[in-house]
Design a protein around this nucleic acid. Sequence first.
DNA 1: CTAGATGCAAAAGATTTGCAGTTTA
DNA 2: TAAACTGCAAATCTTTTGCATCTAG
Lengths: 145, 145
Amino acid sequence: MRLTANKIAGILRENGYKLTPQRHAVLKVIAASSDHMTPETIYSKTREENPDIGLVTIYRTLDLLNSLNLVCRVHAPDGCRSYMMRRPVGHHHHLVCSQCGKVVDFDGCTLADLENRLTKETKFDITGHLLELYGVCPDCRHVPE
Amino acid sequence: MRLTANKIAGILRENGYKLTPQRHAVLKVIAASSDHMTPETIYSKTREENPDIGLVTIYRTLDLLNSLNLVCRVHAPDGCRSYMMRRPVGHHHHLVCSQCGKVVDFDGCTLADLENRLTKETKFDITGHLLELYGVCPDCRHVPE
DNA sequence: CTAGATGCAAAAGATTTGCAGTTTA
DNA sequence: TAAACTGCAAATCTTTTGCATCTAG
């Protein structure tokens, strides 16, 4: 289960942000998709129901949601700026299909040992990581164009 | 030991690409730094010795080197387009200092098990991954501004 | 009522493309 | 010499900012 737009609206309020119709619309769009979307895509999807929203608002809303850790940013070898709803579980990563862009997120990553080792070896104070796996999803594998 | 500019020059030739003075200059700059650099930074460093090189050539050269897997692209939470020399060992990842941008690369990542598990669970055909760790390097930790 | 949000237009960047001239192999 | 490469200028995007207006709480 992912966070719903309604829950997020509550979280917004708790943090002192206003729940505007625009933000609600953006949330609905992101919550409705299981894939990651670029700001541009989110913009046009949101406009379908909210033709008056501006692209700038999309950018600002995404920054806000991202800073509240409500959506997460997906990095791919090409475009590095797309977003999807974050699941309630804190920590997860992405498995991205290189052909259709489908994203599966997963948790249970095994980096703790690695981080410990590197902390010792490099004396870095390790604060986080980005892990994205790439591959071809079953659908794309079976239906070569 | 990293790949030297000279070795790469040979590889370029082997792949049917010409070794131009511009490419050589870019390679020298990248090889001389242990950190990742943006195209813009590489551009200005290259210009120090080669004032006539154009930014476009930097972009094209980086794309070429990247496609030959001679340099690698570093993704950070902010800028996602910077490059550094790739080491001869095939597989490695980055530990990036969030404050000064220093990059340490490392190998021995422990993702094989994870990939096996996910292959089973998701039926994705997993072809690669991107792993970047973030933290604060010893220098930045000891010298708070 | 007021801090915070929005939209517009414009600015600022980043990256790509078209093209004519140059150069490596 | 031919294919590949370069630089320039211009075209495209993408993202950010300034500002006057609006609105959720």
